[in-house]
Amino acid sequence: MSVIYVLLTISVTVALFFFIAFIVSVRSGQYDDSYTPSVRMLFEDELVKKGDTSKEKRTKINPTK
């Protein structure tokens, strides 16, 4: 029965360690997305809706038409 208490104590300690490491990494900006904003402008023209057939939208996607 005492083994359960030891294992429970160790598992809670390890869980707290990983939780604190996660909080520290989030606060330091480890998970900030620095790649997507730099390429977003390359793919903005593809966000035009399919049902929109206005000349302004067509010329923005393909200026040769």
Rank of each mutant, 00 (worst) to 15 (best):
M41Q: 13
I23L: 10
F22V: 01
R40K: 15
I61Y: 08
G29T: 04
N62Y: 14
I61T: 02
L8G: 14
T64A: 14
L42A: 15
V24K: 08
S38V: 12
V26G: 01
K65P: 00
I61G: 00
E46W: 11
E56L: 06
V14E: 06
A15K: 03
E46P: 00
T13R: 03
S54I: 01
V6M: 10
F18I: 12
V24R: 06
K49R: 12
V6N: 07
P37K: 13
K65W: 04
Y31A: 10
S54L: 02
T13E: 02
A21R: 10
L47G: 06
S38L: 15
V26T: 05
D32W: 01
K60W: 10
V3K: 05
V24M: 03
S38F: 10
D32E: 13
L8H: 03
G51R: 05
T36F: 11
I23D: 01
L42H: 12
V3R: 07
E46C: 12
S34A: 11
Y31D: 06
F43L: 14
F19G: 14
I61A: 05
S2C: 03
K57M: 06
A15T: 09
G51E: 13
V3W: 02
P37F: 10
V26S: 06
T59W: 01
Q30W: 07
R40M: 12
F43A: 13
T64Y: 14
T13Y: 05
I4E: 08
E44P: 00
R27K: 14
S54R: 13
Y5N: 08
S25F: 09
S25Y: 03
S28D: 06
T9I: 09
D32T: 09
T13C: 12
K60P: 00
I4L: 11
D33R: 11
K65T: 05
I4N: 04
D52L: 03
F17H: 06
F43R: 14
V14F: 13
T9D: 07
S34N: 15
F18Q: 11
D33E: 12
L47T: 15
V3P: 00
I4H: 03
L8E: 05
I10W: 02
D45F: 05
F43H: 09
S25L: 15
K65Q: 08
I4Q: 08
S38K: 15
K65S: 05
D45A: 11
P37W: 10
I4D: 05
Y31C: 04
Q30A: 13
Y35T: 04
K55A: 06
G51K: 07
T36P: 00
D33Y: 05
A21Y: 01
N62G: 01
R27F: 06
T9E: 07
I23A: 09
F19N: 12
Y35K: 11
G29I: 03
N62L: 11
E44H: 06
I4F: 08
R58M: 07
S34K: 15
R58L: 09
I61P: 00
R27H: 03
Y31R: 09
S11L: 13
T59E: 08
S28N: 13
I20Q: 02
K57E: 07
F18H: 12
V48C: 08
T13Q: 03
R58P: 00
K60S: 03
R27G: 05
R27M: 07
I61R: 12
T64V: 10
P63C: 08
E56N: 01
T9P: 00
T36L: 09
L47S: 14
S11D: 04
I10Y: 01
V12D: 02
R27L: 11
G51L: 03
